[in-house]
């Protein structure tokens, strides 16, 4: 049987028979992959712990007739700190859901998306405050949107492509068109949010830095409103309704 090696993060699993699981994973080399992990529900299985969700492994996979089979898993990172904090876990599962919705088999940007997810989980695990966790998730959403080909427009009006004439900065973000809109286009736009230059600055910095380096970024209202704007922006681009945002509101 031909084999291949890949690095992958476990996103979801489904039970298969008595002791097996079908794993849905995001791999650095092939995007979304689905594999059978045999015997993982047995307490003595060494594969068991490695097949837990939100765990990154270096895998040896055998090509199967229907589904491929996980032969070996060498743990790269188990993001334990993510799993022992309810806020961190909820936001991480939100990122996981986005990857399972938007990721595809054989993504051309799979390496970038894998690295982004890995970095996000790693950062969420070391971060101490909710503000930092929100920053990591905002950065994740902005960069994921870039990889998927609909980067957020922050320089010129997303509708008319011109710069704002009346004001010094943009005052509206349109989740539908996916960027800032000028005061004239605002009247014709749907799903708009009021913003100010702090949001625009935050979006730009979150794309470039993995840490909220300025004290002004430790502002829960600013972070939550930014999170909600991008949540709407992303949800509008998903063909299925996302389930984790409602849970975040319940648990965090």
């Amino acid at each position: 049987m031909p084999h291949y090696r890949t690095r992958a993060i476990n996103l979801k699993s489904h039970n298969l028979g008595e002791a097996d699981k079908i794993m849905v994973m995001y791999s650095r080399e092939h995007g979304i992959i689905r594999c059978v992990a045999k015997g993982v529900k047995k307490t003595k299985s060494s594969l068991g712990a490695r097949m837990q969700c939100l765990t990154a492994n270096n895998l040896l996979i055998a090509k199967g007739r229907n589904l491929d089979i996980v032969c070996q898993a060498e743990n790269l990172e188990c993001f334990d700190k993510v799993k022992t904090d309810l806020t961190k876990l909820s936001y991480s599962l939100y990122c996981t859901e986005l990857i399972s919705h938007f990721g595809t088999e054989g993504d051309s940007n799979s390496a970038g998306i894998y690295d982004l997810l890995f970095e996000t989980f790693k950062n969420i695990s070391v971060f101490k405050t909710t503000e930092e966790v929100l920053w990591a998730v905002l950065r994740f959403k902005l960069k994921l949107a870039e990889y998927l080909g609909y980067a957020v427009e922050l320089e010129t009006c997303a509708r008319c492509n011109k710069t704002e004439q009346k004001y010094k900065t943009y005052h509206f973000f349109c989740a539908d068109t996916g960027g800032v809109v000028c005061s004239e286009c605002f009247l014709k736009s749907r799903k708009t949010f009021e913003i100010d230059n702090r949001h625009i600055k935050l979006f730009k910095d979150a794309l470039n830095y993995d840490f909220p380096f300025e004290s002004e970024y430790f502002d829960k209202n600013l972070l939550f409103s930014s999170f909600n704007i991008l949540k709407e922006f992303i949800s509008l681009r998903s063909d299925k309704k996302l389930k984790t945002p409602a849970i975040i509101e319940l648990l965090c």
Binding site: S90, Y94, K243, A246, L250
Partner: peptide, 11 residues
């Protein structure tokens, strides 16, 4: 069990 990815909430 609570399962965010399956939409199973405490309720």
């Amino acid at each position: 069990l609570i399962s965010p990815l399956d939409g199973i909430t405490p309720d």
